[in-house]
Each structure stands twice: as structure tokens, then as C-alpha cells.
Amino acid sequence: MTEFRPLPQDRRPRIAVLDDYMGVAHRLADWSRVQARADVTFLTEALPPGPATVAGLRGFDAICLLRERSAIPADLLRQLPELRAIAATGKLNRTLDYAAARDLGIAVMTTSGSGNGIYATVELAWGLIIGLMRHIPEESAAMRTGGWQTRLGNALYGRTLGLVGLGKLGGRMVDIARAFGMEVLAWSPNLTPERAEAAGATYVTKEDLLQRSDVVSLHLVLGPTTRGVIGAADLALMRSDAILVNTARGPLVDTGALVAALQSGKLRGAGIDVYDSEPLPADAPIRQLPNALLTPHLGYSVQETFTNFYRETVENLEGWLDGQPRRLAEI
């Protein structure tokens, strides 16, 4: 059985809530019982990389992570001798080294999934698709300056959606695409024709999907076999009037190749919610492209998800303060 670092006896515990970019964590759960027993700091800015991250977290006994935002690798954990607990949101955080935390005697607590917000990422993907197909951002901006009907958009009915990834979220994409009257093609490294058919899609090769689809939407888990799954050669296969949507993980797509395709007009547009580096640097070239519809990793960021995350985080912290951490990660 893992021996956890004990609570400090000479002072009040210190807790940091990381990556609270929108400043909502304090109001989505009742922190009062935790704050009565510990000092809680809500950090609304991303920690800078390198030594500044260590300096920013040193002195805290517990940190609360918003799923897969700040990376907490082993070398960082080893530089935080006072860290006793991590309250992570979600069931799995690929940016956290669980084994290193266990070896250091740090209690890692998790929460259940996204609750009613589980399909929020799918809803955002369709928002990006419709926004691009109907030029909604541009038409809205034109209306504010006196414009009227400046661009002609396209309907979704009768068009083809290509899904790169057909798991739980990809399957939900099929349901909505069918409601719009779209044909659905699907491919992933491990997908079979039988699984695709069961989900209501048609299995094709990646090349066929890219060549035939009006909309290509990514719904893969990031891993060794999927990193860079859409590169320059893949983008070259897409039709010039097609759009690419990525609400999964930034490194699935070669960002440099995507920027080049958008700049040259080889690709009509892209709807992007996830990036290689987050928060996305202010000088990132993709920010300047008029045919890129960008959102700041809003996929699962809805009130329903965050409320569930933070309420269970508070419960976990109360258990930890009582010496009985709850929902310990199964490492």
C-alpha cells in the first residue's frame, strides 16, 4: 500500500487551483469547508514553462488540475518536495506522470467523467462546421459595420462528412450528420468495416476519405500512431473547397502544413479548437488567417462539465484533509 506524504503539522495546508482561465472554479462548487481548513489560491493565468513553473508551484501542499492543461511530468514533481496531493479532474490525464507521483508518496485523486457535458466537444465541432460553411463570423462582423449579405455559404444536406476516428464522440458525430442529410465516411488506424457499419458510417481508406469529403473532422486520441496523422501529403489530397475541423488534439495535425494550405487557398478553411502549445501563443501565424475559425480549447469547457469536476474536486480535498483521500487514481 502506498504511503502518502503526511499533512503539515506546523501550518495550514496550501492548495493551488491551476489553469482557472475563466475565473469560474470558485463559484461552481462550495469551497468554504476547504477554505476553513486550508489556504486556497486560484490561478487564472497559465504557469510559464521551465523554472518559473517550479517557482510558481513550490510551497503548495496540493494542486488541483483541470484536465490535461498544465503538464505535470516526473521531473517537475521531483522538484516539489512539499507537494502531498494532486486533485486531477477527469478519469485520466495524459499530461500527469501518475507513476512518479505514486513513487513520491503524492496522493492523486480523480473525478468522474464530464457528466452531461460529455458530448460538448461534438456540439462545438458542429458549431465550427456550420460557422465555416455559412461564413457566420464574417457575416456577423459585417452586420456590425452596416454590411448585408456579403458572402454565399453552402448547405450541409447532401454533402459528405469524413470522420478520422469513430469512437464515442465520432459515433455521436454520425448521428448528427445523418440528421443533416449527410453521407458519412470513416477511417482510423484500428477501425474495421464492421465497426464503421455498426456506427452508421462507411469505412474507407484515409486517402479515399480525404479526397471525397466536404468536411473532415478529427476525433482520435493522441498517441504514437496518431501524432501527425494529417500532414502535408494528406492535406494535399483534400479538395480545395473542403474544410478541416480539429476538436481532438492539436498534434494530430501538422500545424505548419495546415497554415501553408490555408494561406495558399489549397484548403477552403479550418475550424480549430486544439493546438500544439496551449494557451496558443499570441503571435501564432494561424491567428492571422481569415479562413481559420479558432476557439480556445472550448471542447469540454462547458458549465455542466466544470461543475461536476470542481464539486468532486472539493469532495476529494475534504477527504484528503481528513486523512482519507477519495477517488484515488488506479495507477
Rank of each mutant, 00 (worst) to 15 (best):
V302R: 01
L18A: 03
D241G: 00
M109T: 03
L237T: 02
G269V: 11
Q288R: 15
V24H: 09
S140N: 15
V204N: 01
P137T: 09
L166F: 11
P8L: 10
Y275M: 07
G269K: 06
T225L: 12
Q263M: 12
L96Q: 07
G153E: 05
L328T: 01
H135V: 01
R11C: 04
R327G: 08
L244C: 11
D241Q: 07
F306Q: 09
E194G: 01
L258H: 09
T44Q: 14
S301E: 12
L321K: 07
P81R: 01
V174N: 03
L80I: 03
Q288S: 14
A284Y: 00
A36Y: 07
I243V: 13
C64Q: 08
G271V: 05
P73A: 04
R172G: 01
H297N: 14
T305H: 05
P49K: 13
V253M: 08
V108R: 01
D20R: 02
N246P: 00
T41N: 05
A25E: 07
D208T: 13
D254Q: 10
I130P: 00
A46D: 02
D75V: 08
K206R: 13
L280D: 09
Y310F: 15
G147A: 13
L185R: 12
L152S: 10
W126E: 04
Y21H: 03
G117V: 04
E304H: 06
A260T: 10
A100E: 08
G228R: 04
L220I: 09
P290C: 11
E3A: 15
G228Y: 12
T247E: 07
A141D: 12
Q288L: 12
S70W: 01
W31L: 08
D254N: 15
L43T: 12
L280T: 13
L293S: 01
V24Q: 10
E3M: 01
A248I: 07
P224Y: 09
N190D: 10
L43D: 00
A74S: 10
D97P: 02
Y300R: 03
I176D: 06
V34I: 15
V17C: 00
D175F: 02
R227G: 03
P224G: 06
V204D: 03
G115S: 06
Q9D: 13
Q79N: 11
L328M: 07
T192F: 11
P51A: 15
L57Q: 02
G165A: 12
R151N: 12
A248L: 05
Y300P: 00
A142R: 14
N190Q: 14
R195K: 12
W126Q: 04
L209A: 11
A261Y: 14
P137L: 07
N190C: 12
P48W: 14
I63G: 04
G153S: 09
V108P: 00
R12T: 08
Q288C: 08
D283A: 15
A284F: 00
A292Q: 04
Q79M: 13
P81E: 10
L124D: 07
A201K: 10
A282L: 14
V253E: 08
V216P: 04
P290M: 13
M133W: 13
N291L: 11
A71D: 05
R33H: 13
L220V: 08
A120D: 14
D97F: 08
A186W: 07
R212Y: 04
L280R: 10
I86D: 00
V253S: 12
H297T: 13
L28V: 09
L220M: 15
A329Q: 04
A233R: 09
S217R: 02
F309M: 05
P290D: 05
L218H: 06
T305V: 10
H297I: 13
